[in-house]
Design a protein around this nucleic acid. Sequence first.
DNA 1: CGCAGGGTTGATGCTGCTCAAGACGGGTGG
DNA 2: CCACCCGTCTTGAGCAGCATCAACCCTGCG
Lengths: 252, 252
Amino acid sequence: MTPELLSPTLPTVNVEVLRARCATCSMHQLCLPMGLDMGDMDRLDQIIGRRRKIARGVSLFRIGDAFQNLYAIRLGHFKTYQINPGGEEQVTGFQMAGELLGMDAISADRHHCNAVALEDSEVCEIPFSSLEQLLGNMPTLLRHFHRMMSQEITREQSVMLLLGNMQATQRFAAFIVNLASRYEARGYSGSNFQLRMSREEIGNYLGLTIESISRLLSKFKKEGWLRVSNREIEILQPAKLKAITAGTDICK
Amino acid sequence: MTPELLSPTLPTVNVEVLRARCATCSMHQLCLPMGLDMGDMDRLDQIIGRRRKIARGVSLFRIGDAFQNLYAIRLGHFKTYQINPGGEEQVTGFQMAGELLGMDAISADRHHCNAVALEDSEVCEIPFSSLEQLLGNMPTLLRHFHRMMSQEITREQSVMLLLGNMQATQRFAAFIVNLASRYEARGYSGSNFQLRMSREEIGNYLGLTIESISRLLSKFKKEGWLRVSNREIEILQPAKLKAITAGTDICK
DNA sequence: CGCAGGGTTGATGCTGCTCAAGACGGGTGG
DNA sequence: CCACCCGTCTTGAGCAGCATCAACCCTGCG
């Protein structure tokens, strides 16, 4: 692949593989290998299966699929959603690079949600049985894996809080603030970013309709808290948004 | 303690300790030791700390407490709740015997929610650092622990679904059906049981007010789906409740 | 140019919240 | 034993926040 990049004077190295090692991945400080030394990171690398490209709109896994792998997102964004018996979606989360997908499948050996790429993305396939073996021998990895699972639990608890007792304005502010902080943690701007999801997906996630999201965006724009253009977001008053999220500022 | 129970002709055995072993606990087929052989169960027993009694209304842990232990419920019921910045509670779950408390604290070494006994209860204290060491040497235990964490994730996802796109009637039916199935899994009646939580706690959990819960109970009674007397519940039409939960039956 | 998909805005209505009053049940003290 | 009280629960009336329905706009694309 792309052989023109390989100078003949250099030793032959498979570029794909090189690119794909944990040690050279920009997410290794957030992702599973966090805190591992080089030796351990190599051992982890060895069990990781394919690095797969997932095109926008394509499913990584679906409800009911047999559980084989966890997936670490290298690049891009995903949404996960469940289907209620009436056939309607419920978005349960938006995931970005450095996050792990599929942990809900461990309990029953089947996936409980669908995961779809919101844009062209890349993931690392982590065969769970191999990972579990490795965990037995690598306390640092074990610890970090538990932290990631636990993080998923606390993340969901905060969504429960959001859905259970916040008003629409507060929910939406919380959503924006949450995205901003996650981009910041990844070294991107926390004040300028693009929404990778549609209004409909946001509304579904927040337990609101698409119209409500649209109105909220208009209002946040009118109030001067945000600059909005299509899916482009600029946060103009981060403190205000945080205050609304916190409920300090009861502004409808 | 209770020396009158110890016949002088039998070898002296500490009754408290006997009572407290995993192997003799009625919950060992649901709880952490599930699937362990006797040897492994003994090793697990050895790391387990105190068996503590928690009186009704007393906190097992609070938000911000340093994380030391997970807790397995031997007996009784708990609720977990978060506090939003406005000081209001949001109940995030009700736990019963055989379930594990505290897994959300692994990620940050601090508890993220409060856990309060809904009635006089008993828990086993499981020092997490010891548990993690043990997990490295006991693949079966490791597997089951991951299943339990994953179960917590899927449980919360289904609450998100409930809060995100169900109507009040459906939420409440889902709540009752969920309780029933959990009692059944524990060998209790799935059609006759007592609510251990107040109307207010139910409402808070389901994102509804106490008045709504009260009205829903009255309605379910009037429709002949439930018999209700104070906190005593008898399910008269389980199929109906399941249909409402599933959304098959759009009955408001 | 026309179309499709996504987004915005307005008018109206319903579900569940708020506020208020009263009932019930269990516990306490006279 | 009754009177009283308190917390919990029930029921009713009115209201508001968000959903629903509908029309329209914008943008990209064939």
